[in-house]
Amino acid sequence: MERERNLRILVAKPGLDGHDRGARVIARAFRDAGFEVIYTGCHQTPEQIVSTAIQEDVDMIGLSILSGAHTYSFPRILELLKENSAEDITVIGGGIFPLEDIPKLKAMGIKEIFEPGAKLQEITAWVGENVKPREGIGA
């Protein structure tokens, strides 16, 4: 019998900008795609984001950012995930990034970056294909 398995996704907004329209729209799109979305609001530090991701046992973290703070927050989040042996959690980003930063972010372990103009369908389809609910921990 088919088990009920939902992808769990944390949509988080690191940094100081308070414009979370994009984050809310993507949270809603993920919900409509059948995912469980944990949404925590603006102004999150990397420490708060990783702590939440672990307590909520998410499969993916989607980071929304417009402020340019990604150069600090993205690597810090990846580092903290590693420290907590949680590097199996997929991390993606969405928002505004200088073009030259994108390959750097991907090289450090951000799985995908979505820029303005990316279609919601495109993003949810990417997640559905690339992120799977993890296996049970076993007895």
Partner: peptide
Amino acid sequence: FTGGAILGDRI
């Protein structure tokens, strides 16, 4: 309808 959810209590 979709089985999805937005869990926002943490805010």
